[in-house]
Computed example of a mutant assay.
Amino acid sequence: MIKKMTQYLLQRRCALSLLLMLMLLQSAMAQTQDRRMYARLDRETQTLTLYYDKNEQASDIAIYDTPLWTYYVERKAIQTVVFDESFKDARPKSCNAWFFCFEGLTRIEHLDYLNTSEVDNMRLMFSKVPTWKHLI
């Protein structure tokens, strides 16, 4: 009887340990999956900042392979683009038309945080940016 009870407790302990380990692993995986690429516009300074973290707000724009800012009028007024340090861990697949029609753009800060190692499309990335050659 004691032998069976010991086996039962060991099995239960192993199962509980395994369950705990799976929960911790799932939590760790969820933390890395929650990070997203997004852009936030400061309308006061006309600065667009790109992030790769878990702090996206409802007013931010998720980054895909389309122009980074949705509204054409605001896109034309953006003067500065900043790559936040968090963006150095992002691996975009495309930068297609990211800065399309950023006609007021005069400065890009921390471009070294943009890792293009997995990018296969940069088509129109700086299209209609009159000063793009002076930005990079």
Rank of each mutant, 00 (worst) to 15 (best):
L20F: 11
T47H: 04
N115K: 07
P92W: 04
Q7N: 10
T66C: 05
T49H: 11
E109G: 03
L135M: 03
D89I: 02
D112C: 01
L9R: 13
Q31E: 10
T66L: 06
Y64E: 10
F102A: 02
T6Y: 06
P67H: 02
D60V: 01
D65P: 08
L50G: 02
V82N: 10
Q33F: 02
Y52L: 00
A97K: 10
P67F: 02
A90R: 01
A30M: 08
L48F: 03
G104C: 09
E44K: 15
P130H: 05
T106Y: 01
T80R: 12
L18I: 13
Y8F: 13
K54Y: 00
R13F: 05
T47I: 04
K88L: 06
L111V: 06
W132G: 04
F102N: 04
T80Y: 02
I2M: 05
Y71D: 15
L50E: 02
M1T: 06
N55L: 00
T45Q: 11
E103W: 08
Y72N: 10
F126H: 07
T66Y: 08
F83M: 03
A39C: 05
E56Y: 03
M122F: 04
A28M: 12
D34G: 05
V81N: 05
L50F: 07
S17Q: 14
F87A: 02
F99I: 12
L16D: 14
R75K: 15
K88T: 12
D120L: 07
L18T: 14
E85D: 13
Y113D: 03
D53E: 00
L50K: 01
E74Y: 08
L124I: 07
K4Q: 03
M21N: 08
L10A: 13
Q7R: 11
R123L: 14
M5K: 12
M29Y: 15
N121Q: 07
L18C: 15
L124F: 13
D42E: 09
A77Q: 15
C101P: 06
F87W: 01
S17G: 11
R91M: 15
K133C: 12
F126I: 05
R107C: 07
E56Q: 14
K128R: 11
R107N: 13
I108H: 04
A30Q: 14
E74T: 09
V82C: 10
T80I: 14
T131E: 05
I63P: 01
L18Y: 15
V73H: 07
T131A: 06
H110R: 09
T66Q: 07
I63G: 00
P67R: 01
